[in-house]
Design a protein around this nucleic acid. Structure first.
Lengths: 133, 133
DNA sequence: TGAAATAGGACTACACCAGTCGTATTTAAG
DNA sequence: CTTAAATACGACTGGTGTAGTCCTATTTCA
């Protein structure tokens, strides 16, 4: 409940790692070994981060990944939404189809939860990778 | 990801409901019908809230539930932890056995996530049922 | 041409969640 | 004393999501 997924954790660790080596090209092998992350899982995470344009990939031998933006221009929220493929939402109310919630019409806690939702978004948006290096 | 469970939503709605009728005794039937919540599920939630001493139960005909404390002494965090049986924690790092995380030793994001964790706890602790009536 | 690297689909095992069902117990009221 | 209304609670199911594994294809450097 209210847990971040392992994929997001791995993504944050990887991006932070690249930032910490001054954006030198880094490979899945190197990162997965250093942080004890299963390499296949990390590989998929890196592919998502690439598609989300947070990092840049270089294929082939001597390839790897570098950041696609400055570390202070990548927020924790960027990482989460790229990896999860959706926005953070503590309930269905704050997704793109709130009406699909089974209790939508009679729900009395939308507004209070909205405050919490808003707060959470603010925290994730304002924390940048540059702060966690 | 980062979702509140339906049980917690139901619990909040139920507690808010009882508060909204000035703590008059309320039944599962009444609440489940009013808010379109499956009654069996709500019943279990009410039992947990009772065990957690947030509400008081009265068995038998004419029975039901009332709040066990003033609405301004019940926080959203109280409801969550009683229903989930554990504290809110966005990662394994902030449970009672952080070392069981597969990447515990090499994890570089404990501290930044700790800030987020702390913030979230604060929000949930400070929002009281009295505010959402 | 071979080795090192990313790209990506298919699959499995497991855990969690929401909901249902059945039964027991308690208590007010007729 | 019997019935009805209510809580208590365990067992079970179906669905969904997560984490991880495996396999193959593609790219590129040396």
């Amino acid at each position: 409940m209210l847990k971040l997924s392992k994929k997001v954790e791995y993504g944050l660790i990887a991006i932070r790692h690249i930032a910490s080596v001054n954006n030198h090209i880094s490979t899945v092998k190197e990162i997965s070994e250093k942080y004890s992350i299963p390499s296949d899982v990390l590989a998929k995470v890196m592919q998502k981060l690439t598609k989300g344009k947070l990092i840049t990939s270089y294929q082939g031998a001597m390839g790897g990944y570098t950041l696609a933006r400055r570390a202070d221009e990548i927020s924790v929220m960027n990482v989460i939404s790229v990896i999860e493929g959706s926005q953070v939402s503590i309930t269905q109310c704050f997704t793109d189809e709130p009406e699909s919630c089974s209790i939508y019409l009679n729900c009395t806690i939308k507004n209070p939860l909205g405050k919490i939702q808003h707060n959470l978004e603010h925290v994730f948006n304002s924390m940048k990778v540059s702060e966690i290096v």
